[in-house]
C-alpha cells in the first residue's frame, strides 16, 4: 500500500477544504482500503469523514419521503423498521449485498461510489482505461463484460445492489462541494464510460455525497415491490443479474410501474419505455415478459453473452411477478434470492 497522510476533519467545511487531487474520502473503508491494498487506489491523502456530525441520520417524513445520511451503515438502514416497511426492496437489496461484517462497516455514500469488480480493473498490471486512462482495456480479450451501455474503452459492470432500487424509486443525491450544495437525480449520478471511462460519476472532483433522499411518491410501491438477485452462490456474491420491480395496482390493473436492472451495465439500468408497457395492463406473465424483454433491448447480441441476456430478462420478469404477488410481511430468510419461501413461488400461467 502506498503511504498516505491521514486526516480526520471534524466538520464538513474542514473536509471540503482538505480535499485536493490525489486525496480520497474514507467512509467505511470496505471498498477503498481493499483497493489500496491491491494497489488500484493510490491516494496520497485519506480523509476520514466519519467524524463529521450530521451525516448518520435516517429521517422518515410524514409525507412518505425519507432522507438518509451518507454515513448510515448498510445494516442500520436495512434494519430500520420504518424504512424497511416503506421501502422494502431497498432493504432487501442492502441485505442481499456483501456479508454481515461488511454491511456493518459499509456506508450509503460509499455504496453509491463503489468501484467496479472488473477483474482487469482490479489487477494493476493489466490495461484498464478506467484505472489508467489511455492504457486500453484487457476485458476486450473476452469480448467485454457489460451487456449494454459499454464502450470500446470500458465494459465494467456497476456492482451495487442498493443502487438498483434507488434508481427505480427516483432517489435524489445531495452533494456538497467547494461551490456549495447541489442535488443530483439518481439517474444522472452514474455515467456511461463512453470516451472517458475514468469518470464514472457526474460528481465534480472534491464533491462529497452528504445524503440521499427518497421522494414521497416512492412509498406507494411498498405493498408491491421486490428485489431479485441471481448469483453464483446463494449469499455473499455479486449479481450475475438483478432486478428491482415495483408496481401500483388498482382494480386489478397496473397504474404505476418501476423496473431497474443490475449486474448488466456500467451503471444501474432503467428503461422508462419498458415501464410504460405495463401501465393500464392487468399483471400477467405475458406483459411482464414483454416489459422485461424491452428493458434489455439493445443488449450485445454476442453468442457468449446470450445466456446472461436471457437470464436478465427472466430475472426482471420474475421480479415483476413477485412484486405483483405483494411484498411479504417479513423479509425472506435469503434476501434477494430465487430460493424463497413457498408463498413467494410464482404461479402465473
Amino acid at each position: 500500500m502506498k503511504p498516505f497522510d491521514f486526516k480526520q476533519p471534524a466538520t464538513l467545511e474542514q473536509a471540503l477544504t482538505l480535499w485536493h487531487p490525489g486525496a480520497a474520502w474514507l467512509g467505511g473503508g470496505t471498498n477503498l482500503v481493499d483497493l489500496m491494498k491491491i494497489g488500484v487506489a493510490r491516494p496520497d491523502t485519506v480523509i476520514d469523514i466519519t467524524r463529521i456530525p450530521g451525516l448518520s441520520e435516517i429521517d422518515l417524513a410524514d409525507d412518505g419521503s425519507a432522507r438518509i445520511g451518507a454515513l448510515v451503515k448498510n445494516s442500520d438502514l436495512a434494519d430500520h423498521p420504518g424504512f424497511a416497511a416503506r421501502f422494502p426492496m431497498v432493504a432487501e437489496a442492502l441485505l442481499s449485498g456483501a456479508s454481515g461484517q461488511l454491511r456493518n462497516a459499509a456506508t450509503l455514500g460509499g455504496n453509491l461510489m463503489q468501484a467496479p469488480r472488473c477483474p482487469w480493473f482490479q489487477l494493476p498490471e493489466s490495461a484498464c482505461n478506467r484505472r489508467n486512462p489511455g492504457s486500453g482495456c484487457d476485458a476486450r480479450q473476452v469480448g467485454g463484460l457489460a451487456l449494454i451501455g459499454a464502450s470500446e474503452g470500458c465494459s465494467a459492470i456497476h456492482p451495487s445492489d442498493l443502487c438498483v432500487p434507488l434508481l427505480a424509486l427516483d432517489a435524489v443525491v445531495e452533494v456538497a462541494g467547494p461551490d456549495g450544495h447541489r442535488e443530483v437525480p439518481f439517474a444522472t449520478l452514474h455515467r456511461l464510460p463512453g470516451e472517458h471511462p475514468e469518470t464514472a460519476t457526474t460528481l465534480a472532483p472534491g464533491e462529497l455525497i452528504v445524503a440521499l433522499r427518497l421522494p414521497a411518491g416512492a412509498a406507494r410501491f411498498a405493498g408491491h415491490a421486490a428485489y431479485l438477485k441471481v448469483r453464483e452462490r446463494t449469499s455473499f456474491a455479486f449479481a450475475l443479474t438483478s432486478a428491482a420491480a415495483a408496481l401500483e395496482l388498482r382494480d386489478g390493473r397496473i397504474t404505476a410501474a418501476r423496473l431497474a436492472l443490475g449486474g448488466i451495465a456500467p451503471k444501474p439500468w432503467r428503461v422508462p419505455e419498458a415501464e410504460a408497457l405495463l401501465i393500464g395492463q392487468p399483471p400477467g406473465a405475458e406483459v411482464f415478459a414483454r416489459a422485461a424483454a424491452h428493458a434489455l433491448e439493445g443488449a450485445d447480441p454476442a453468442a457468449r453473452k446470450n445466456w446472461r441476456r436471457l437470464l436478465a430478462i427472466r430475472t426482471a420478469q420474475k421480479a415483476l411477478h413477485m412484486a405483483a404477488l405483494g411484498t411479504p410481511e417479513t423479509l425472506p430468510a435469503l434476501p434477494g434470492s430465487v430460493f424463497r419461501s413457498p408463498a413467494q413461488e410464482v404461479s402465473h400461467a
Binding site: F6, G29, V33, L102, A105
Partner: peptide, 8 residues
C-alpha cells in the same frame, strides 16, 4: 462484528 483487515 466487522472485518479488522479493512479497518484502519
Amino acid at each position: 462484528r466487522t472485518t479488522a483487515c479493512l479497518t484502519l
